[in-house]
């Protein structure tokens, strides 16, 4: 995981210096560090001249942002309607059992984070799991050990 915060100003500088850039900047920061470090939020507030309270409000409103570091592999189990109907609950539980964490948590070794997401747009292949940017369709319980291993 990167912990070099010196890149923060350059990430912020990619966007116009106005309040409407706030979400886009936070998205880029999230992408770079896998979470929103406090320094980054402060720096963003300062640069855009937006109150820190507004930055924090936005950071906690949207699901895409995480205030704590995430693991190397982000496993997102789709729990959208199509996936729910085709048994995503069992899939989620099996991941929980396998990784010994609940959705929203990260394994102590910082390898895996588990999250649930309401539809990733591959509903025809339900149940769907996303590991980082890759989609896995028609996931069966028997495949979960293997998915945790690779991906």
């Amino acid at each position: 995981m990167k912990q070099d915060f010196t890149t923060i100003p350059s990430i912020i500088a990619r966007h116009p210096r106005k309040a409407s850039s706030l979400i886009m900047i936070l998205q880029d920061i999230q992408k770079e560090f896998n979470y929103l470090p406090e320094e980054a939020m402060r720096k963003t507030a300062e640069t855009l001249e937006v109150p820190m309270s507004k930055v924090y409000s936005v950071a906690t409103f949207y699901n895409a942002f995480s205030l704590v570091p995430r693991g190397e592999k982000l496993i997102r189990v789709c729990v959208g309607t199509a996936c729910h109907i085709r048994g995503s609950k069992v899939i989620r539980e099996q991941f929980e059992n396998e990784l010994k964490i609940k959705p929203g948590e990260t394994t102590p070794d910082m390898k895996y984070s588990l999250e649930v997401v309401g539809c990733v747009g591959a509903c025809a292949m339900a149940p769907v799991v996303m590991i980082n940017d890759k989609y896995f369709g028609s996931v069966k319980t028997s495949r979960i050990k293997q998915l945790v291993g690779k991906g």
Partner: peptide, 25 residues
């Protein structure tokens, strides 16, 4: 292009417009 940040309510028109403006939806 503006990317959403994970909020269903931002599909609602006035919330979407707030989100485009960089605010809470």
């Amino acid at each position: 292009i503006n990317r959403g940040a994970g909020a269903f309510v931002c599909g609602e028109s006035s919330a979407l417009m707030k989100s485009v403006a960089g605010e809470v939806g």
